[in-house]
Design a protein around this nucleic acid. Structure first.
Length: 800
RNA sequence: GCAGGUGUGGCGAAAUUGGUAAACGCAUCAGACUCAAAAUCUGACGGUAGCAAUACUUUACGGGUUCAAGUCCCAUCACCUGCACCA
């Protein structure tokens, strides 16, 4: 019937040659910035899941352009990082080479799908011209005191041979390979993200993210208000500090628990009489993975310290101290006060080890329901009689502060960002270690610090980056004193490059700075940012932190980077399971484009269902959408010479214009496609349609199926190409029918429908309804109790 | 355990936000065209009863509010996602 390949290639070429989708940095038009997460150019190519989100935002970009916006819709490649490196190692090729090959494949796939990306702004994060600025920004963190090197127990993946951030090792499993992570003490570069905890929380209010994304970030940051309390160590002039959200329960403390890693265990090893037992327990705790340690069903374990006691500051009572792995080293102070009467975990521990339990909130016994709720304070001296939590807490905090034994404190789950990776394929961290001067930054004018070419880039067994073996690169002079020094050999995580790429798109070729202030001011915040839910507490949090830092340095004009964040659902295999090679249910977009065309694939993926929900692939569904496009093509034979809307189609066309516009802007693509199907069905029923009828349906379909629609528009000389045309206007006056259907019901049950003139008055409607045979049947010889008449909608007669 | 979400035909889903449930598409069945196939077109398609008009019934489950509930409220169940011994 028609050769979709020829048509698609033709228009893709025209769009590129005419630079139709290149955004201007100096435009009178209002800007609109649409962004989809740039992909890792892995060896497996584009996924049908990419097609879903790219098409969705592409349709939005095309509509926005038609509505007169200067649209920035860029694309690039997140090319540093583990996936590219692993692929390179496996296939014994140089990472840079393989990355370039993969980028070519990805780009050609995207071009074949007709996405209206602005390719003039393309870059990859592994380009030295790009990572020069990633390194430069790292140095700004360093100068501001927010990058520091610390000996830290990190998550270590024994398979990938690298350290991982907390975010990459969630649940004690390596994000990349699924191997159980181990703890390893290493000296690491850290970014002080914890300093931005409150900003990251407050900043959410300036964004329009989906609630579930906000919730995920709020939980991850994990702000909790409480108090820090100092318990004096018996016989020492020293204190054990704890954090608690319930200082009002201080009188209920019957024991303390320190984490097995607590530094006092070493400091007071001579004081602790059963230190051997302690060491044994520490050994035991270390052997547990995070998963095993945090298994809630596991019985509590622990060791009571012999000879080490603390004094409860509110009543001067001597309190026993335990160590147990249910207390985490890296949260709070690594030690807690235990109130077994009102905390489930403390209760479990106390009952197992026969530790006394003192109730301090009346009716708040752990064995009764709602023990955490408010209650009357008892056994609590100064707090006795207070019956609300808030008052009790604030009174206790005042007391602690007056006595100098504690203070109000806010704690966060959010930790600093471990920024070192012991890998080759990443941005070198531009720092030099000098025996005399310590850590010295590489001078900014020497950036980029280029990744050297090395014969072997595979990770080393020693836990050092492969760069450590490149001695002539490692050895250098101290920029400060000129003495022999050594370069840092760790590289940055691949989250680094993606933390600011959206800024570079605003001014991608600038070699004076990462982006000019003019460009940054013009483009402002990303208006619409689409990406996966899996990035809610990773990329999306890192990028916000990075941006907020740049804002504080006066380097960007907005506090937050992204206005609106949306997420697409996954495309599952035909069997309803996640697509994977091992399950054999992977659908290759190239095959679909070859068999049905890019337009059909795009239309299908928009029609597949609710954009934010997962959807199973169905090739039959795709065929159905191809049939729809074929029907659109066939309609060309019905077009007559008339240049106005057909009278009997006018209302539906106007309604459809409105619906498609609204639906695409609210991401209800499935109903937009369905509205166009309905319209095409109406066209199909007619002998003839007008040129304007036809051009309008093509125009409305163009954002979703851009190739075929441009072709038909040109073939019939219906008007300017759509990429140069404004979106059709609808006439609000023509949207309403002059006839409406009224539902007539008796006792809420539909008995008849009548067609009447629009705005027929209530009395008339009621009269007409009662005349209906099928209505009469149900109201005859019945007592009418109530009559409800809603104009243009419904009549309901209630009878008894 | 906490937080968020979802539940509608054989399937993917709609439903003007409280007003005719199942639009649109897929699959299936029957028919037309054809030597035949494909494509296309016509019709049927939640369930039960009926030749039919039609009636009853139906939005996970049970209550409630209302003239009217898929939609609002309460309780229950199932599933999904995130966080989780966070003091």
């Amino acid at each position: 019937m028609y050769d979709f390949k020829e048509i698609e290639e033709k228009w893709q070429k025209i769009w590129l040659e005419k630079k139709c989708f290149e955004a201007k940095n100096n435009s009178e038009k209002e800007k609109y910035y649409l962004l989809v997460e740039f992909p890792y150019p892995s060896g497996s190519g584009l996924h049908v899941g990419h097609v879903r989100s790219y098409t969705a935002l592409d349709a939005m970009a095309r509509i926005k352009r038609m509505k007169g916006y200067n649209v920035l819709f860029p694309m690039g490649f997140d090319a540093f990082g583990a996936p590219a490196e692993q692929y390179a190692i496996k296939n014994h090729v140089y990472p840079a080479d393989i990355v370039n090959d993969c980028i070519k494949v990805f780009k050609s796939q995207m071009l074949k799908l007709g996405f209206s990306f602005d390719w003039s702004r393309e870059f990859a994060t592994c380009d030295p011209k790009y990572y020069k600025w990633t390194q430069w920004q790292f140095l700004q963190f360093y100068k501001a005191g927010l990058a520091y090197k610390a000996e830290k127990e990190i998550n270590w993946c024994p398979k990938c041979l690298t350290g991982l951030s907390n975010e990459d090792a969630e649940g004690g499993v390596c994000e990349r390979c699924g191997t159980k992570t181990e703890k390893k003490l290493k000296s690491q570069w850290m970014l002080k993200m914890s300093a931005y905890a409150d900003k990251l929380l407050d900043g959410l209010e300036k964004t329009d993210f989906m609630d579930k994304i906000k919730t995920a970030q709020i939980n991850w940051i994990g702000r909790s208000e409480g108090a820090s309390v100092n318990f004096k160590i018996e016989g020492e002039d020293d204190y054990l500090e704890v954090f608690t959200t319930r200082p009002d329960t201080l009188y209920g403390v019957t024991f303390m628990v320190m984490s097995p890693e607590h530094k006092y265990l070493e400091k007071y090893q001579n004081k602790i009489k059963n230190i051997d037992e302690v060491h044994k327990y520490q050994e035991y705790a270390r052997s547990k993975t995070d998963i095993e340690r945090t298994d809630l069903t596991r019985e509590k374990t622990g060791v009571k310290l012999d000879g080490f006691y603390v004094i409860n500051p509110v009543n001067n009572e001597k309190v026993q101290v335990w160590i147990s792995d249910y207390v985490l080293a890296n949260y709070g102070t690594g030690a807690i006060m235990a109130v077994p009467a009102h905390d489930q975990r403390d209760y479990d521990f106390a009952t197992k080890f026969n530790i006394p339990i003192i109730e301090v909130i009346e009716g708040g016994d752990i064995n009764k329901e709602a023990y955490t709720g408010d209650g009357k304070m008892i056994n609590s001296d100064i707090l006795n009689g207070i019956d609300n939590k808030k008052e009790a807490i604030s009174k206790m905090i005042n007391f602690l502060e007056e006595k100098g034994i504690g203070s109000k404190k806010v704690n966060y789950k959010l930790q600093d960002w471990i920024f070192s990776r012991q890998r080759f394929w990443g941005e070198p961290i531009p720092m030099i270690y000098c025996e005399d001067c310590g850590w010295v930054p590489v001078p900014e004018e020497e950036l980029p610090l280029v990744l050297p070419e090395v014969p072997s880039y595979e990770p080393t067994e020693t836990g050092e980056s492969p760069l450590a073996n490149v001695t002539d690169w490692v050895n250098c002079k101290c920029p400060k004193c000129g003495k022999d020094a050594k370069r840092e050999t760790d590289t940055m995580p691949n989250w680094a490059g993606s933390s600011w790429y959206y800024l570079r798109f605003m001014d991608p070729h600038n070699d004076k700075c990462f982006a000019s202030m003019d460009a940054l001011k013009y483009w402002g915040m990303v208006d619409y940012y689409n990406g996966g839910m899996e990035h809610a507490t990773r990329h999306l949090l890192y990028a916000r932190f990075w941006h907020e830092f740049l804002y504080d340095q006066g380097l960007v004009p907005t506090e937050e980077p992204f206005k609106k964040r949306v997420s697409h659902g996954m495309i599952l295999g035909e069997n309803g399971e996640k697509m994977s090679k091992s399950k054999g249910n992977v659908v290759n977009p190239d095959d679909m484009v070859n068999s049905y065309g890019a337009d059909a694939l795009r239309t299908y993926e928009m029609f597949i269902g609710d954009y934010s929900k997962d959807a199973s692939w169905s090739e039959n569904g795709l065929k159905g959408c191809k049939r729809f496009l074929d029907k659109i093509y066939r309609l060309k034979d019905k077009v007559n010479d008339d240049n106005e809307y057909s009278k009997d189609l006018e209302i539906l066309i106007n309604k459809t214009i409105k619906k498609v516009d609204e639906d695409i802007n609210s991401m209800n693509y499935n109903t937009a496609v369905s509205a166009l199907m309905i319209l095409s069905n109406e066209y199909d029923k007619k002998e003839n349609i007008t040129r304007k009828d036809y051009r309008t349906i093509l125009h409305l379909l163009n954002p979703i199926a851009p190739h075929l629609t441009e072709e038909l528009n040109e073939m019939l000389s219906l008007g300017k190409p759509f990429y140069e045309s404004s979106f059709p206007e609808y006439d609000e006056n023509k949207i309403t029918f002059d006839k409406v259907n009224i539902a007539c019901s008796v006792n809420g049950k539909l008995r008849a429908t009548i067609e009447v003139d629009k705005d027929t008055n209530e009395n008339e409607l009621l009269k007409l309804a009662k005349e209906q045979e099928n209505v009469k049947k149900y109201i005859e010889e019945k007592e009418i109790i109530k009559e409800i008449v809603i104009k243009n909608k419904i009549v309901n007669i209630v009878v008894k």
